[in-house]
Amino acid sequence: MEQKRHIVELYEQTINWVKELKEVSDEQWRMPVAPGKWTIAEVIGHLIFWDLFVLEKRLPFFFEKCILPASPNVDVTNRLASEESKIKTKEELIISFVATRTKLVSAIKKIPDENWNSQLSLKSKEITLMDYFAGLLDHDCRHFDEIRAALRKHGK
Rank of each mutant, 00 (worst) to 15 (best):
D75Q: 08
Q13P: 04
Q119E: 15
L10H: 03
G36Y: 02
R30C: 11
V105N: 06
K37P: 01
L80H: 06
R5P: 00
F144Q: 03
D51E: 09
D113W: 06
M1Y: 10
L68F: 12
E9V: 05
D113A: 15
I67V: 14
M130L: 14
V43E: 07
R58W: 00
I40W: 03
R142G: 10
E64V: 09
T77A: 12
D75P: 04
S124Q: 15
K4S: 10
N16V: 09
G155F: 08
A41M: 08
V24R: 07
D26F: 00
H6N: 12
P112M: 08
K65F: 10
W116R: 07
T14V: 01
E12M: 13
G45L: 05
L21N: 03
Y132W: 09
I44V: 15
F62W: 12
K153Q: 13
I7V: 15
A107N: 07
T102R: 14
D145N: 14
F144T: 02
A107Q: 12
N117S: 14
R152K: 15
G45D: 06
D138R: 12
F63C: 09
W29Q: 01
N73F: 03
I48P: 00
L129W: 05
K37D: 05
W29F: 10
D138A: 13
E56A: 13
K156S: 14
L137M: 07
G45N: 04
E64I: 02
G155V: 06
K22L: 10
F133K: 04
G155P: 02
K153P: 00
L120W: 02
F97I: 03
W17K: 11
W38M: 00
S124V: 14
R152F: 11
V98Q: 02
F63R: 05
F144K: 03
K153D: 11
L129F: 14
L122P: 01
A134N: 13
K103F: 09
D75L: 01
A41R: 06
V74P: 05
E146C: 00
R152I: 09
K110D: 13
I48M: 08
K22D: 13
S106Q: 14
K125S: 14
